[in-house]
Amino acid sequence: MEELIRCRGLSKRYGKVLGLEDLSLSIPAGKIVGILGPNGSGKTTLIKMLCGLLVPEAGEVLIDGKPVGTESKAVVSYLPERPYFSDAMRISEVVDFFEEFYGDFRRETAERMLQTLGLDFDKKISALSKGNREKVQLVLVMSREAKVYLLDEPMGGVDPAARDFILKTILTNYNEDASVLISTHLISDVENVLDDVIFIKQGRLALYKSVDEIRMEKNKSVDALFREVFAC
């Protein structure tokens, strides 16, 4: 299977606090992978390194065989855990923005999904509720025909109905030849859609297995194994 993401010996410290320590992994195409771990374990640090928002102190990242840079960013669709659109922009302007900068952006898909949400395209981002801002952001990120989708806490702080919308949007819109990385600690919500899971514990890779393997070998759900591995 084609390898889309390769990390070798990634390390990062925030002052005296460990972010990541000698983390190596390889993720093939066509998989939905859950990056799981408690708060501060290094999930967001890893995702930021993959999309170029953080430069590792040591190690190397290759996306589709290329180091992180302009070429890798053109094939990576990233959803941060915070709103990243300017409040002053209108929905129509952010759609134009994505179309202008990303060659793989599918405008019709985005417009169709935004219409489903019943959002007025002339509305300013500042006029949207927190939930709708997150939905608009997700719609635009998933409207790209990217090779890698990096979704950092896509369901953090939203109600169960919104979580369903988010999961449905991810599953019905991602490019099937792509890798989807979802960082979350809401395991029970995503467990059924994941192919593989990565456990990160104190900046180190604790486990990388397929969900089927976990179920067959350990006779446990991912949620149950997570509680066991990260028991306080």
């Binding site: 999309c51 302009t70 053109a74």
Partner: peptide, 17 residues
């Protein structure tokens, strides 16, 4: 604001140098 605050998450992940 555009490069080092929240909007920076969008700007620095664009396929630009």
């Amino acid at each position: 604001k555009n490069l080092f605050k929240d909007e920076g998450y969008l700007m620095h992940t664009l396929p630009v140098k």
